[in-house]
Design a protein around this nucleic acid. Sequence first.
DNA 1: TCTGGGGTCCTAGGACCC
DNA 2: TCTGGGGTCCTAGGACCC
Length: 416
Amino acid sequence: MYALIDGNNFFASCERVGNPGLVGKPVIVLSNNDGNAIARSNEAKAIGIKMGDPLFKIKDIVKQHDVKVYSSNYGLYGDMSNRMLDIIRMQIPYVEPYSIDEAFGMMHGISKQYEICVQLRHNIYKWIGIPTSIGLAPTKSLAKVANKIAKKFPERTGSVYAIDSEEKRIKALKWTEIDDVWGIGRAYANKLKSKGIFTAYDFVTKVSGDWVKKNMTIVGYRLQLDLQGISTLFFEDIQDKQNIACTRSFERNIQDKKYLEERICTFSANVAEKLRGQKTHCSMIYVFLNTNRFRPDLPSYNPGVYFATDYPTNSTFEITRAALKGLSSIFREGFDYKKAGIIVSGITPESSYQLSFFGSEKPKDQDAMKAIDLLNKKYGRHKIAFGGQDITRIMKMRQHNVSRNFAGNWNELIEL
DNA sequence: TCTGGGGTCCTAGGACCC
DNA sequence: TCTGGGGTCCTAGGACCC
């Protein structure tokens, strides 16, 4: 059996932990630049705010219902997420974090699984104030379904639901609309609906495995089996990321190459730091630029380019150098750029460093990077920055209402 | 006026190898 | 008239997730 533990309206719930006065009121949390609603309390959902709604389009509802609006505070959410995982690990030894607000627990070999889940939910709420829903089922995709039922019927299920019999599995699949199945997005849902498939039950009974393989690749076929109770999506041990990205939209349109260079330097420093944090190197760097995709009236230009590094590296100097070279090769005058970013890949562990035929004996700049990371850790992030970065941070994000990171920073404790 | 960021996996096709 | 078989790697693009 797998358990799926999922924080309800996670970001909004995190905000409530630090400000209990928000309980019962509509709360939303915005994306970077205060762009879109990316988390909503139940009350905010009830008055019609949709996932991803741009703030400027829901201004009236916000005003009318006195919706509490927060900028995103990832320091806080990351901290709460780690606390939640810690509590889960106290009761379930094998845990696979799936996203910032949810995790799979492997229940094989654990007795009284349902009772454990009930206890776990209680503990998480009592100790860190985050309400959760828990689904329990023989496969991962069924645990997702069970979780949805727990979330939809909190009174009847106590927010914990187990699919532990064939009758329950069938009932649950019949209840689940095809769009709500984990792994079936808009494109596949439309394709399936046009074939008369409207529920998860239809998907496992009315359409052949061959058709699914042909039209939804092997991924869809695995999902079909998994929903039948044959486990095809397995527990995965935590591993290093395969891509690391840093991308941002700009608050305004940018034509100036100098500004883009500054952004690229900052992004490079950021991903290099993440690489070092997980003790890996990268060997490929992708740089891209985007014009505003919401302005079809303006000329559009969305170039991107890959650059291989000479050897695996996590040096900010090396990555910045390659990224700037990439930028120069794609930049063209006369466009209004709205977004830029870099993605590094070809990630290998530091421990298996591949020597270059002609190059230096060991990875470059190791000592300098180590010193910088240490100083930044000791004296605060960005204490040491790189020449290409804008240390005055004039390109700062628009963020009107950021809460305190009351759980992760001594200086931001709540004062009563 | 204002529209996020960071990930995963799979497939097809081209270029290459012996 | 006739033109093998078995591979790898890379890239672009599409689908999905939170």
